[in-house]
């Protein structure tokens, strides 16, 4: 991720000239009634970059993911996908995995992916097979989606998200409720996708995986972005040994420290 504060001040022409940027969200604000959920958040993702958004429950991660994915309008701010951030002109803009995906029962894994693939111009059976292979669901492609475990359903959701080779992937807590092996597998898939040039934004509580795989970690708290650096830089700049401690050190106040710690601990021990 580039410097978020500087990004907020970028002009449209600046954005257009940066070929490596896959997506840029500028000054995003969003309220629900009188409650401000996002307040001037800026995020940018380069091609091949894996950006992790970290924050306690209620910090605005899901709303930010929805805005970036283009399924929710912000009250203010803009999301820009530079045309030159894509590797081909028919490429899908954004692939999105919501927090708790579910699919229609009565259809197999393959049929479900084929359904989504039909909305793409240049996606055929090969792409569905390739996607099944990539997310590791080829061996269960004939199974009814209703019989899949939670982890497999997320992998199917990831498969849906990567169909059509989108330039940006937006994943909202893809590892939530999964066992450590499955989380590791999921993040290694994301890492390989990033290696292929896909820009990835992932909201997650899995700090161990984030420390290993993320290029950039952004801390979100109460609708505002606190800090955005690589995991190594973050630990060094805060002088902390873990990302949880680094996050707490970055917070403006520690009035809900115990809640934040509990939230992270809960996810890490899933």
């Amino acid at each position: 991720m580039s410097d978020d504060v500087a990004a907020a001040n970028s002009t449209q022409s600046d954005v257009d000239s940066e070929t490596a940027i896959a997506l840029r969200a500028l000054d995003i604000s969003r309220s629900f009634g009188n409650v401000s959920v996002l307040d001037g958040v800026s995020v940018s993702v380069e091609q091949g970059e894996l950006v992790a958004i970290v924050g306690p429950n209620g910090s605005g991660k899901s709303t930010l993911m929805e805005v970036i994915a283009g399924v929710r309008s912000p009250d203010a701010g803009s999301v820009i996908i530079p045309a030159d951030g894509r590797t081909n002109t028919n490429q899908r803009d954004v692939g999105y995995l919501p927090q708790r995906p579910a699919f229609r029962e009565g259809f197999t894994v393959r049929e479900t992916l084929q359904f989504y693939a039909r909305f793409l111009d240049e996606t055929g059976p090969t792409d569905v097979n390739e996607t099944l292979q990539r997310v590791g669901l080829r061996h269960v492609s004939g199974r009814n989606v209703g019989s899949l475990s939670g982890g497999m359903t997320r992998l199917l959701g990831l498969g849906q998200a990567i169909l059509g080779h989108p330039s940006v992937l937006v994943l909202d807590e893809p590892g939530s409720g999964l066992d450590p092996t499955m989380v590791e597998r999921l993040f290694s898939i994301l890492h390989s996708l990033a290696d292929d040039g896909t820009g990835i934004v992932v909201a997650s509580h899995h700090l161990a995986a984030i420390e290993t795989y993320a290029d950039t970690v952004a801390f979100l708290d109460r609708g505002g972005l606190l800090v955005s650096e690589s995991p190594t830089q973050l630990l060094a700049s805060t002088g902390q040994e873990t990302l949880v401690d680094a996050f707490l050190a970055s917070m403006k106040s520690d009035e809900h420290e115990s809640t934040v710690r509990a939230g992270f601990r809960e996810e890490e021990t899933d």
Partner: peptide, 17 residues
Amino acid sequence: LNDRLTGELDMLRTFDV
């Protein structure tokens, strides 16, 4: 409504439907 509750509506939207 079911597509909305399961998140499929949001997923479909990213396919420019």
